[in-house]
Simulated scan of single mutants.
Amino acid sequence: MTELSRILVVEDQPLLLLDLIDQLAELGFEALPAGSARTAARLLDTGIDALVTDIELGSGPDGLALARLAARAHPGLPIVVVSGGICPSPAELPPGAMFIAKPYSVDAILAALRRQALCRAA
């Protein structure tokens, strides 16, 4: 899996969610928005190519739980976990997932996703 086209973006802050969705769309990606881990979990089986999730998602499961669920359901799925307040240890991330601290750039997120996709395709 080296082609990324459908990216599930999970963020509970609407402005941050819309900003990343818009930036990805401008670059030609189809970005699926989700404001919670519960909503995102329902979208995992819709043919996504990658997941970008914040850790702190308000009430309910957090982004780390979602990332682990996604990794179990779709081994090899490129996953980027972001946060402005929590810095997870490597053991808290699913194998192969990458953490990027906020504020981030869309270029940094895409580079991390592409790196994972290339590594897993090799």
Score class of each variant (00 low, 15 high):
A31Q: 06
L32K: 09
P33R: 07
A37E: 04
R38I: 10
R38K: 02
A41F: 00
A41N: 13
L43W: 01
L43I: 00
D45S: 14
D45Y: 00
T46P: 02
G47K: 12
G47L: 12
A50Q: 06
L51H: 06
L51E: 09
T53D: 10
L57C: 08
G58W: 02
G58L: 03
G58F: 07
P61E: 11
D62L: 07
G63T: 04
L64N: 08
L64S: 05
L64C: 02
L66F: 10
L66W: 06
A67S: 05
A67R: 01
R68Y: 02
R68K: 15
L69H: 11
A70H: 00
A73C: 11
H74C: 08
P75D: 03
G76V: 00
G76Q: 11
L77A: 09
L77Q: 01
L77E: 03
V80G: 07
V81Y: 02
G84D: 01
G84W: 01
G85F: 10
I86D: 06
C87Q: 07
P88M: 14
P90L: 15
A91D: 12
E92S: 14
E92W: 00
L93Q: 08
L93I: 05
P95A: 15
P95W: 04
G96I: 10
G96R: 06
G96M: 14
A97W: 01
M98Q: 15
I100H: 12
K102W: 01
K102S: 09
P103C: 11
P103T: 05
P103R: 03
Y104R: 06
Y104A: 08
